[in-house]
Simulated assay, not measured.
Amino acid sequence: MNSIAFWAALLSGSRNGMDPRVSATSLRSCYADGLSINSTTGEIFGTPTGTGVSPGIVVRVTDDIDQTDDLPSFTITVRNSLIRLVDQRSHIGAATFTLDDVECGQEHASRVIAVAATGAGVSHEVSGMVIASATGLGVATTNDRSAAIYFAATPTGETADIDVTVSNINIFVQFEVFSLYGVDATVFDSDTLVDASGLNDSFNASVSADDDGIVLAGFCSNNNSASVTWTNLDEISDVDTAGFANERHSTAGLMDSAAGTLSVTVETSAATGGSLVVVSFAGL
């Protein structure tokens, strides 16, 4: 298990947030070993000693005459690796442009900002990105339509500018921005697929996954009415660009992956052309 553990949060029932007569808080029940509570502020902190789901955590508040009350129970899920969708953007127009003030999520020493970029239309590729002044590493399709994932280690900063280069003008490109935690900022393995026939409803790519790693994928079809279903990955976003382009953009991911070959399939509810990119990241 790495240092990612648990994001401490100030509970709504803490002394600073509610009745000033509350004199102390305590954990009445907590099954996540390694966590403690600040009895004055109600802040839960620490590094859990193992992964898993810890349900039924209850915080008890005590007032200045020793009366007690229990706040509603909640659950903490501890993972070695984590994916968070933190921003969504789109662009059509110039071939080089900047996405300004993109949200980056919680700062952390292991944070990697990853950007999935997908588009259809005139033959093109998303050929490069600079993320918070760092040249993004990545994987991209190189013909017909785009499916790309670029990323850079970005431990600090609440927002960042992202400079993008596309090989053609007036291409509608959808961007999904993720903060990844607990993985190395290099490509462990990758695969891409482009099918321009417009006649298929199933698209497949395979990658080698690492223990406690992350697998992230992006897909674009040129049929916005065709819904998308992922196999072996959990869908994260689904964007119907009706009104801008006849396209459907979808992303999916897997946290705490197991070592081995992972086959990723995208099925669409109607025949379409499509582009698919899958990238795996090694766990720390």
Rank of each mutant, 00 (worst) to 15 (best):
N222E: 04
D66S: 12
A117Y: 05
A271F: 01
T25Y: 00
S250C: 13
G136A: 14
N168Y: 02
L216C: 08
V207S: 09
G182M: 03
V112Y: 02
T156V: 11
N224M: 06
A9Y: 14
V278I: 12
T272L: 00
V264L: 09
I37P: 06
D195H: 07
D238I: 09
T265H: 01
D184Y: 01
L71K: 01
T40P: 02
F178G: 06
T186D: 15
S36P: 01
T261S: 15
E103F: 09
T192K: 07
D69W: 15
D64V: 04
N223G: 09
E235L: 12
A32P: 03
S26M: 12
A116V: 13
D211G: 06
H249S: 13
S23W: 05
V166S: 02
A282I: 04
E125L: 14
V61I: 15
D238A: 10
M18S: 14
I149V: 14
D201C: 02
I171P: 02
T265E: 11
R111K: 12
N168W: 07
D144W: 12
S123K: 01
D195K: 04
F6M: 12
T51L: 13
V264I: 15
N200T: 09
R89W: 08
A270R: 01
I214R: 10
A116I: 05
F172E: 09
M129W: 06
R145P: 00
P72E: 05
T47A: 05
V139W: 01
T118G: 13
E267S: 15
F281D: 05
R21Y: 10
N16G: 11
T272C: 14
W7L: 14
V177W: 00
E247F: 15
Q106F: 10
D238W: 01
P48L: 08
E107V: 10
V59G: 10
R89N: 10
D63R: 05
T154G: 03
V86G: 06
V22A: 02
I92S: 10
